[in-house]
């Protein structure tokens, strides 16, 4: 190929590359970008994902995220990229490891302990209800109670 043509070809290639990187995402890619964006917390907001924040930083992060989607990076790679820079606190869906495990296991452990305590409590109150009219207590009833019992046993009205 002649010199000038090679230059033109290189220019066209460079131009197509620039256009490709600047062009809009396909609907599937945009959906993927939005889905990932919803799990990335805006670092300068209160609990907002970058998809809902109008801040300059969030918009820049979303643009960065879109570029990574276009580059074919996976969801894990992209969330890992932001977590490596901003820490796990940037993820609205914290990974289930380390101290974060407490977040996920805490409620389960609390529920199990609660059910266990409730079962124990119910069993104790039930057995206590059976024990109430025990021999010792009955022996301690006064004469009035004895009369009442006798009348009830004979079906006589008071």
């Amino acid at each position: 190929m002649q010199g000038p043509w090679r230059g033109v070809l290189a220019l066209l290639l460079a131009l197509s590359f620039v256009l490709a990187s600047a062009q809009a995402l396909s609907p599937a890619q945009e959906a993927q970008a939005q889905a990932i964006g919803r799990t990335i917390r805006c670092p300068v907001c209160q609990g907002l994902p970058i998809t809902e924040s109008p801040s300059e930083l969030s918009q820049s992060m979303l643009r960065d995220l879109r570029e990574q989607v276009v580059a074919g990076r996976s969801t894990d790679q992209i969330t890992g990229y932001f977590a490596a820079r901003y820490g796990d606190t940037v993820l609205l869906d914290p990974p289930r490891r380390g101290v974060n495990l407490l977040l996920w296991l805490g409620p389960v452990v609390a529920a199990v302990l609660g059910v266990w305590w409730l079962a124990l409590y119910l069993r104790r109150t039930r057995s206590a209800a059976i024990i109430v009219p025990d021999a010792e207590t009955e022996e301690e009833q006064d004469d009035y109670m004895a009369r009442v019992k006798a009348e009830v046993a004979h079906g006589r009205p008071s």
């Binding site: 300068v44 820079r85 901003y86 820490g87």
Partner: peptide, 13 residues
């Protein structure tokens, strides 16, 4: 201007 380097360094404030 595009905050690319700031994001690469995880700068938030």
């Amino acid at each position: 201007p595009n905050l690319n380097t700031s994001i690469a360094y995880g700068v938030s404030g």
